[in-house]
Amino acid sequence: MSRRARGAILLAAALGAGLLSSCAGSAGSPDSSVEGSWGNTEDSSMPSLVFESAGRFSGTDGCNTLMGRWDQEGSSVELTDVTSTLVGCIGVDTWLSDAAAAEVDGETLALFNNDGDPIGTLQR
């Protein structure tokens, strides 16, 4: 086999390995990870959540502050140890305080209560 033919085979093998590794990494792509900000974090009167890499989250329902822990498997997110302030806020829908689970779908985070009922969504 000529040196040029061996070089072409090695190049093809390296390119193939690179393509396979990029496909394997797509399951953990940023689009499927809950980490980061959801909702309008610039306006404290709007619902939002921030998921930190250490497994903690915090946010607001537009009135009350909430925080807790999260664990993700695939696109499903379990929210645990959720605590919230209990300020009575006139005209504010405090739905986010009832969140117990979430589902990541691209740029949308669907949130569910303890019964598994959908309670709302936040955008990335």
Results as ranks from 00 to 15, higher is better:
Glu35Leu: 14
Cys63Gly: 05
Leu10Gly: 08
Asp71Ala: 11
Val82Lys: 05
Gly16Arg: 06
Gly39Glu: 14
Glu73Cys: 09
Asn113His: 11
Gln72Arg: 10
Glu103Tyr: 00
Asp105Ala: 13
Leu109Tyr: 06
Leu10Ser: 07
Gly18Tyr: 06
Asp115Tyr: 13
Cys89Asn: 03
Gly7Leu: 11
Met1Thr: 13
Asp117His: 07
Glu42Gln: 09
Gly59Pro: 04
Leu10Ile: 09
Ala14Leu: 12
Ser22Gln: 04
Glu42Val: 04
Leu79Pro: 00
Thr65Gly: 02
Thr85Lys: 01
Leu11Lys: 07
Leu79Thr: 00
Gln72Ala: 11
Pro47Gln: 15
Ser22Met: 02
Met67Arg: 06
Ser32Tyr: 13
Ser32Pro: 02
Glu78Gly: 10
Arg4Cys: 00
Cys63Asp: 07
Gln72His: 10
Ser84Ile: 01
Glu107Ala: 07
Phe57Pro: 04
Ile90Cys: 00
Asn64Pro: 01
Trp70Tyr: 10
Asn64Tyr: 02
Leu20Tyr: 09
Ala99Cys: 06
Gly55Asn: 04
Leu15Arg: 08
Gly39Ala: 15
Ala100Phe: 07
Ser22Gly: 02
Gly25Ile: 01
Ser26Gly: 08
Thr65Cys: 00
Asp115Asn: 13
Ser76Tyr: 02
Glu42Ser: 09
Leu10Met: 08
Ala13Gly: 08
Gly106Glu: 06
Phe57Cys: 08
Asp71Thr: 10
Leu66Pro: 03
Val92Cys: 01
Thr65Arg: 13
Asp117Met: 09
Ser22Asn: 03
Asn40Gln: 15
Ala27Ser: 14
Met1Tyr: 14
Ser29Cys: 04
Phe57Val: 08
Gln72Tyr: 09
Leu10Lys: 03
Ser2Ile: 01
Gly120Trp: 10
Gln72Val: 11
Trp38Phe: 12
Leu20Ile: 12
Val104Ile: 05
Gly88Val: 07
Gly39Pro: 14
Trp70Lys: 01
Leu66Trp: 02
Phe112Pro: 06
Thr60Gly: 11
Thr108Arg: 05
Pro30Trp: 05
Glu52Arg: 13
Ser37Lys: 15
Val50Gln: 14
Leu96Glu: 09
Gly16Asp: 11
Thr121Val: 03
Arg56Leu: 05
Val82Tyr: 02
Ser58Ala: 11
Ser53Trp: 09
Thr80Val: 06
Ala99Arg: 03
Asn114Gln: 12
Gly74Trp: 14
Ser32Val: 13
Glu35Ser: 15
Ser45Pro: 04
Asp31Trp: 11
Leu96Thr: 10
Asp61Gln: 05
Trp95Met: 05
Ser84Pro: 01
Pro118Ala: 15
Gly16Ser: 15
Gly62Leu: 11
Gly59Tyr: 09
Ser48His: 15
Gly55Glu: 03
Asn114Thr: 12
Ala102Arg: 08
Gly59Lys: 08
Val87Asp: 03
Phe112Glu: 12
Phe57His: 09
Cys23Leu: 11
Gly91Ile: 04
Ser29Glu: 10
Asp31Ile: 10
Gly91Met: 02
Ser22Arg: 02
Glu42Gly: 06
Ser32His: 15
Thr83Asn: 05
Leu79Arg: 01
Thr80Ile: 05
Ala27Tyr: 15
Leu10Tyr: 06
Asp71Ile: 05
Ala24Arg: 13
Arg124Asn: 07
Cys63Ser: 06
Leu11Pro: 02
Ser75Arg: 12
Asn40Asp: 15
Met46Pro: 05
Gly106Arg: 00
Ser84Tyr: 01
Leu111Met: 10
Arg6His: 07
Gly28Pro: 06
Gln123Thr: 12
